[in-house]
Structure formats: structure tokens, C-alpha cells
Design a binder for these strands. Structure first.
Lengths: 213, 213
DNA sequence: TCACATAGATAGCGAGCGCTCACTTTTTAT
DNA sequence: ATAAAAAGTGAGCGCTCGCTATCTATGTGA
């Protein structure tokens, strides 16, 4: 005990603040574990070590490991949409514009938050409960990405093509991220990826409705 | 013991035949486990149950679980190339031709053999040894797919665009397969995938070098 | 035929997993 | 001030995992 008037360095927090703090630490720890070590190595013990809390604290707030993972999925889903929206507002007039946008989208897709989301998607394939829990987050994510794509290309592509272009772009970038065997990005021989992205940009721009000069 | 002349139902096999038989059973069992239950649930016990052999038999032929998985990866890599090559030889003159080819490629990508390969790719991301072991198979796979693509589009696309188109197509199909949350394929709302594939086909055909009539 | 090498089966070990429980510490309500 | 409630701790339980040791069955070469 400390003499009155000289407070300890430990700050006083309400129960709600403590609760939110450790939950946030657990979610962040889970994201880091999933992105760095993968789904299988994301044990409750590993998450707790990363978050700096005890296992008892984890199981106070999440009844099961899967509940923690589902909460993490919803956590990163919102982050991913925000990052995706941030790319909107750029120009997409020329091929070079589109190449720049695709490059920025690529770095977003390779980010830890997206890596986490992908890890959970794969795990959900063999886990019916996780799969069901991921569906809502996934649908809202897709809807919001479509909205962001409309901001980008809304006056360049008709609605009919918008969703299709979005599907091509994000699935290709996801496919690249999934099957990247080299830890270093852009280590592919001959810069195939760069050429593929430029070709895709050319294809997209050439499908803009013709303007009559 | 049975009287001479009346052989038992059990056939007599050489040691080499027994060996190859159980190894083949183990590899097939591993493929089935990976495709149906996923990487984490592909335990040595599960594989042995699927293959109908004992754990002792498994560890006689494969010193470790990872060795079994690496062998399985090389096993399916060759299968995948064969399936991919089989799509070559079709026409790709019209948009409808290309749509048909993309549809066939899509079913190949969704096959169990490819699902297995994808499961191993993801696991390799957080397992340096598995990753290193997968690199050769992956490179030969890419090279052979490029060869098959040349058979398909060799006289329609110049070399410069060939690898780029291949990258777009297979990465998009892989991305679709990776992030498919619905067990039923083509259950997406509004047939977005079909429209995306058709748009991609249109884009590819419209990038054929112009012929002067 | 028979000693030997190879193939396969079975029991079980140590480690790590998800999770529980008895307990202490901190905040809140009276 | 004090009792109740909530948050957080850490030892440990039951279980499954990859893997080993020991044993039996089967084919091989002399």
C-alpha cells in the first residue's frame, strides 16, 4: 500500500475498459498469430502469449477457440473494407492509372489483415460451424467492395460489367496471394505478375464504352 | 493349410509389389483426407484408416508425416498437369469457345487433386520445410502449364501476352476456389462468376492480333 | 529347407492441445 | 467500510497428436 496522495503508477480503469482492452489485445494477438504462424499454430496458448494475458482471461470472454476466431474474422473484415475503400477516389482514366490502382490493391491484398481473412477462409472449408459464421461477414464485405468499386469505375463501366470486373480483379489478386510460395513478393521470374496486371489493366480500359470524338 | 492344387484366395505378391501397393494406398488416402477434411484433420491415423493400413506401415515407408505430405504433393502435381493438358486441343476462335475452355478449366481447378494441391500450398506458407519441398513441383507445374497454354493459344497470342493471360486465368480460378464458402459451386447470387468468366473471355479474344479482312 | 531381410500390426510414450476450476485482484454498489 | 460482482491467474485434466519399440507375417536367396 502506498501513502495517500502518492498514487501508484497503475491507472484506474472501469471494468468495461478493462474488458474492452483485453478483448482488443486478444483479437490483435489472434490476427498476428494467424498472419505469421498460420491457422494450425494459432493455439489458445500462442494467442495468449502474443496478447500478454492468461488463458483464463481468454476463456472468460470467448467460450471457445472457434468463437475467438469468428470474432477475429468479423474484426478484420471491417478493416479490409476500409482499406479497400481508401483506394477509391483515384483516377482510372488511362491504362497507367488502372495499373497503379491494381498495384495498390495488390499490396492491400498482401497485408496481414487480408492474410488473416484468407487463413480463416481456408480453415472454414473443413469446419462447418466456422463456415456458417463467416458467411455474413463475407457477404457484407462483398457488398461494400462492390460499392467501393462503383466509386472507382461507376462512370466508366456499366453496372453489368462492374461486378464482373471486380470478381476478376480480386479473385486474381487473391489467387496470387494464396499460391505465393516465395516469402518475398514480386520475386517471380521475369516479372510475370507485373505484365499480367498491366495486361489486365489494358483489357479493362479497352472495355470502357467508346467515346465518339 | 489347403490341399495342394487348391490355392488360397490370397494372391502371392513380391515384396516390391506389396511395397508399391501400400504406398499407393497411402498416397491416395492422403489425397482423400486432404481434399475432404483439410490439412489439420489429415492426421497419420486418419490417413491410415482411409488407406486401410496400420500406422506402422505408414512410418515404414515415410519417415515422418511431412515426408508423406511432400510425396503426396509431387503425386498430385503430375496429375494436375495431365488434367490441364487435356483441355488443350480445343478451339479458341470465338468468345463462346473461350468461355467453354474457361468453364472446363474451372471444373479441373475444383477437382479433388487440385484441392489437395491448394491445401498443401496454404500449409506451406507457415512451414519452411514443406515450402522448400514444394518449390520444384510448383515450378515444373507452371512450366508445363505454360506449354499447354501455348498449345491452346500459341497461334492467337504472342509469347509476350501468353504468360500474362495464363497468370490471369489460373490465378482468378484459384482465387475462386480458395474463397468459395459455399460447398455447392455456382451457387453464387446472380451468376456473377459466369458473367465474370464471359467478360474475361471477351477481353482475351478482343486482344487477339487484328486480322485485316 | 531354412536363415534372413523386408513388410505390416499393435501397444504405448511424451508433448501439446482445448478447456475447466479454484483462487486472487480489481472495480462497483450500498 | 464492506460485501458482492466482475476480471484475471495458473495449475492441471482428459484427449489426440506424431512417432517409436516390439512383435508377427511374408517373401527371398542359399
Amino acid at each position: 500500500m502506498i501513502v495517500a496522495g502518492v498514487t501508484t503508477t497503475r491507472e484506474r480503469r472501469t471494468q468495461a475498459e478493462r474488458r474492452e482492452g483485453t478483448i482488443a489485445a486478444l483479437l490483435d494477438g489472434t490476427v498476428r498469430c494467424l498472419a505469421e504462424r498460420g491457422y494450425a499454430a494459432t493455439s489458445t496458448a500462442a494467442v495468449c502469449a502474443e496478447a500478454g494475458v492468461s488463458q483464463g482471461a481468454l476463456f472468460r470472454h470467448f467460450p471457445t477457440r472457434q468463437a475467438l476466431l469468428v470474432a477475429t474474422a468479423e474484426h478484420v473484415a471491417t478493416r479490409n473494407v476500409d482499406a479497400f475503400r481508401a483506394t477509391a477516389g483515384a483516377d482510372v482514366d488511362t491504362v497507367d492509372d488502372v495499373v497503379a490502382v491494381l498495384g495498390r490493391l495488390r499490396t492491400i491484398v498482401l497485408s496481414p489483415a487480408n492474410q488473416t481473412w484468407r487463413e480463416l477462409l481456408v480453415a472454414a472449408r473443413s469446419d462447418a460451424d466456422l463456415r456458417a459464421a463467416l458467411v455474413p461477414a463475407r457477404e457484407s464485405l462483398q457488398a461494400q467492395m462492390l460499392g467501393a468499386a462503383a466509386d472507382l469505375w461507376g462512370d466508366r463501366l456499366r453496372d453489368h460489367d462492374l461486378a464482373a470486373v471486380l470478381s476478376i480483379v480480386v479473385n486474381m489478386l487473391d489467387g496470387l496471394a494464396f499460391s505465393a510460395l516465395d516469402p518475398d513478393p514480386a520475386a517471380a521470374p521475369g516479372r510475370t505478375v507485373e505484365r499480367a496486371l498491366r495486361l489486365l489493366a489494358e483489357m479493362i480500359v479497352s472495355h470502357y464504352p467508346q467515346e465518339h470524338p
